[in-house]
Amino acid sequence: MTSHQLPYRARASEGVRSLLAEAVTAASGRLVSLSHRLHAHPETAWEEEKAARWTASLLDDLGFAVTPGVCDLPTAFRATVGSGPLHVALCAEYDALPGLGHACGHNIIAASAVGAAAALTRVADGLGLTVTVLGTPAEEGGGGKILMLERGAFAGVDVAMMVHPGPVDVAEAEPFAVAHLGVRYTGRAAHAAAYPEQGRNAADAFTVAQVGIGLLRQQLPPTTRVHGLVTRGGEAPNAIPERTQGRWYVRAGSLEELERVRPRVEACFRAGALASGCALEIEPESPPYSEFRNDAELVALYRRNAEGIGRRFAAPGDPAARMNRASTDMGNVSRVVRALHPYLGIDSLPAVNHQREFAAACATAAADAAVLDGALALALTAADLAAGGAAGTATARDSP
Results as ranks from 00 to 15, higher is better:
residue 119 A to M: 00
residue 121 T to Q: 00
residue 121 T to G: 02
residue 121 T to M: 00
residue 123 V to M: 06
residue 125 D to I: 02
residue 126 G to I: 02
residue 126 G to C: 01
residue 129 L to N: 03
residue 133 V to S: 10
residue 134 L to I: 14
residue 135 G to N: 05
residue 137 P to K: 12
residue 138 A to M: 03
residue 139 E to R: 14
residue 139 E to T: 09
residue 140 E to K: 13
residue 141 G to H: 11
residue 141 G to V: 06
residue 143 G to H: 08
residue 143 G to I: 07
residue 144 G to N: 11
residue 144 G to Q: 06
residue 147 L to T: 15
residue 148 M to W: 01
residue 149 L to E: 09
residue 154 F to W: 09
residue 155 A to Y: 11
residue 156 G to Y: 06
residue 157 V to Y: 12
residue 158 D to M: 12
residue 160 A to Q: 07
residue 161 M to K: 05
residue 161 M to H: 11
residue 161 M to T: 02
residue 162 M to G: 04
residue 163 V to S: 04
residue 164 H to R: 10
residue 165 P to R: 05
residue 165 P to K: 06
residue 167 P to A: 15
residue 169 D to R: 04
residue 169 D to E: 15
residue 173 A to W: 14
residue 174 E to P: 00
residue 174 E to S: 15
residue 175 P to E: 07
residue 176 F to T: 13
residue 176 F to L: 15
residue 176 F to E: 02
residue 178 V to W: 02
residue 181 L to S: 11
residue 182 G to Y: 05
residue 183 V to L: 07
residue 183 V to T: 05
residue 184 R to Y: 01
residue 184 R to N: 12
residue 185 Y to M: 11
residue 189 A to I: 06
residue 191 H to A: 12
residue 191 H to G: 04
residue 191 H to F: 07
residue 192 A to Q: 03
residue 192 A to G: 02
residue 194 A to N: 11
residue 196 P to D: 01
residue 197 E to D: 12
residue 198 Q to L: 14
residue 200 R to K: 15
residue 201 N to Y: 06
residue 201 N to D: 13
residue 201 N to Q: 10
residue 202 A to W: 09
residue 202 A to N: 08
residue 204 D to P: 00
residue 206 F to T: 01
residue 206 F to C: 09
residue 206 F to E: 06
residue 208 V to I: 15
residue 210 Q to W: 08
residue 215 L to K: 01
residue 216 L to N: 04
residue 217 R to T: 09
residue 217 R to Q: 06
residue 218 Q to Y: 10
residue 218 Q to F: 08
residue 219 Q to L: 12
residue 221 P to I: 12
residue 223 T to L: 08
residue 223 T to S: 15
residue 223 T to F: 00
residue 224 T to D: 08
residue 225 R to G: 12
residue 227 H to F: 15
residue 227 H to N: 13
residue 228 G to A: 06
residue 229 L to Q: 10
residue 229 L to H: 02
residue 230 V to P: 02
residue 232 R to T: 13
residue 234 G to C: 11
residue 235 E to V: 15
residue 236 A to E: 03
